[in-house]
Nucleic acid binder design. Sequence first.
DNA 1: AGTTTATGCTCTAGCCGTGAACAAAACCCT
DNA 2: AGGGTTTTGTTCACGGCTAGAGCATAAACT
Lengths: 420, 420
Amino acid sequence: MKIATTSGELRAHNRVRLLRAVHDCGAARTRSQLTRDLGLARGTASVLVAGLADDELLHEEPASEHARGRPTQVPGPHPHGPLALAADVREDAWELAACELGGRVTVLEVRPHDGTPEGALAPLGEAVAAHRRRLGHRVVGVGMALPGPVRHGGLVAITHLGWRSVNVPALLGLHPHAAHRGGSEPPDLPIVGNDTAFAALAEARRGRLRGVRVGLHLHVDFDLGGVLVVDGHPLGGAGETGAEFGHMPLGGGDRPCDCGAIGCWGMDVGANALLRHAGLAYGGGRGREQAEQVLATNEEAVATVARALGRGVAALVNAHDPEVVTLSGLGAELWERAGEALLAAGEPYLMTIRRDRPPRIEGSALGWRGALLGAMESVFDAFLTTEGLELWRKNHPDQARDTPDQQNVMHSTFEGENPI
Amino acid sequence: MKIATTSGELRAHNRVRLLRAVHDCGAARTRSQLTRDLGLARGTASVLVAGLADDELLHEEPASEHARGRPTQVPGPHPHGPLALAADVREDAWELAACELGGRVTVLEVRPHDGTPEGALAPLGEAVAAHRRRLGHRVVGVGMALPGPVRHGGLVAITHLGWRSVNVPALLGLHPHAAHRGGSEPPDLPIVGNDTAFAALAEARRGRLRGVRVGLHLHVDFDLGGVLVVDGHPLGGAGETGAEFGHMPLGGGDRPCDCGAIGCWGMDVGANALLRHAGLAYGGGRGREQAEQVLATNEEAVATVARALGRGVAALVNAHDPEVVTLSGLGAELWERAGEALLAAGEPYLMTIRRDRPPRIEGSALGWRGALLGAMESVFDAFLTTEGLELWRKNHPDQARDTPDQQNVMHSTFEGENPI
DNA sequence: AGTTTATGCTCTAGCCGTGAACAAAACCCT
DNA sequence: AGGGTTTTGTTCACGGCTAGAGCATAAACT
């Protein structure tokens, strides 16, 4: 986070801190708690909240439970406040959702696709554009998770689907538009990222890696992704194409991988490996249901995959000394069904000092939703900055400040539910 | 870095920023440059510099080269300013140095030792204590690099020397003293760290990883250490015992390692591996000279080790996507003598997308000095914070503010050189 | 109904950085 | 040599910010 150096930046900074705190706690803390947690004076908090409410970023509601004194308010998302659109594109389907400040998610659309870049992305692009039109200026960004390495700018390579260097923003039809009014760069370009990195981000903010200084997150689906999470941030690598722990030769074999290397660990862990061990056809992002059947019925195949997973986990624990290792997607199910085999296979590969104080291993708290939630968090990460809020202020229609009539209209919309 | 939230913290913050900038550039930039780089108003810089000079943290000297206008000053270390003590403890010898703000290093002592914890650390502890007495309040911290994983609190395991869980601060005789005057926690405890992590830190601040967002640093001596450097910080892991990339099974073998695991990559890279391939005795931290002879004469052994290094580097590049890979210690020499073999061996293990834009591989800019310099940097990292500077102010003898006589005395000491 | 308690609101004091005006100290040109 | 130019350091009025105190408020407790 950038630091303030002038008294003017100070205010902008505290606005961000307050909004960030509201978002991170899921809009569940009272104003007085927030005031204490952020170390602010009550007067300062008063001014800040008033300003943010004026900008339609926050809206206070009375707290439901009271203690002794004067009842306090709970700052939450404003009914006209910022929204993040987020999509999780998998090998065989995609999901699109909207999310408001605080993290409440509304799923908008789910649709299967044929695995081609156009077949997957063109309809998604249309759906995004339609919802963006509908929601107008409230949409502050679009996040998109994809199951492969994503270069800066949205070039995606998903070798096991035959995507070589797919320009995701272009296929979505979400080119950066002409300059907004206001002049500054509009946040029109989607934030495209790796599903594993997003799942890790979600885990760090709202899952089992919350408050963890150094964690390791492994996301298992058809193949295996892994990434280190440090102080709440997944490490993306230089071109944002990190999170590829699955392509280290930790499995011991030398089978050629679709990625172009040999011996990749990821080939021995995931749905494809399950199908292979069960003697079924695999590859091309097909066979999710068969894989789940193997997972449920073929104990030997499950144990073999769990052992491969365990061996690699041990290697990564040696190298990075994480506090917690979290497993999402299939990984969580492997951990549940064959945790013993996983641990036993890793044991010989652990350093003695790691055996003395091994990291916790846990299934994800977010299940298969991680990637979607992480994409959403990344949009808010970009928005909850001094620049992001400044842009909101600029591109925002004038708030009803002077006209009391409009104030009343606004209040009337507060009454009912407003589904996104 | 902590962020400021009140106007009071603002000042403290800018003091840190200015001092940090002076330190990072090696006291080579003029005040006007610093003012521009930090985005300060000239007036603000004026006040800040005056305050820091008052606290004996900075001392301005006229710039040697002039441009057109009024000549500017160069802020540098104050003759009574803070000093960091730093030691590099290797398997067969240690080195102790002092360093002032800006990074000028004075080597104080070098001494071989017998490889036992007491034999190595007791004399070092005495030397540190003696210099600390001599230099008094100017010593703001002691940093110490050791060739093995270091747990928080200074417990070190160097398995290839038979050190199991050595309490370094205790053996140094540097227990935390009784409370300082001032009350706050004194910085008496040495900052004990892994040599690889320190070498990486030095590389990030004053070497080839400067300004690099994601880098990978590998330090090869008797064994192999490796660590990721993100935004100028080596990733320590949960218990600060990260930096152990050498203990992943990237070599392909299954030989048992001293660390308790099997198949560790580090066994195939480093002085021990060189000795082994040459058919010589190895282990116990002995044989540095023989290893250097092997390096100079036995091409086949060198190539074998370089290939093992290259294979692991490829795996790590896949996983982390670093911008630059730096090699220090023996690694730099291996790179120089057998860079081709290293690259060729790594090639098959690289993902296609990594082959398209491979990271730069470079020898360290700091040679064998990295660990020592990194230990020094870590002391300044702890000192150049709002808390560190506040402590300096408190524990500092009163500055000669009102008495002009003392001012003159001070100026007389400015004249001569003052060797540390 | 009065007391207690925690919170929200308002206003002043103190601190900080900005930016303008001025002073200083060099270089450049005639 | 001397005046103009250029860049930097210094000083100060100004606006912005947060802290903290005092007061108002609204509930729970007695």
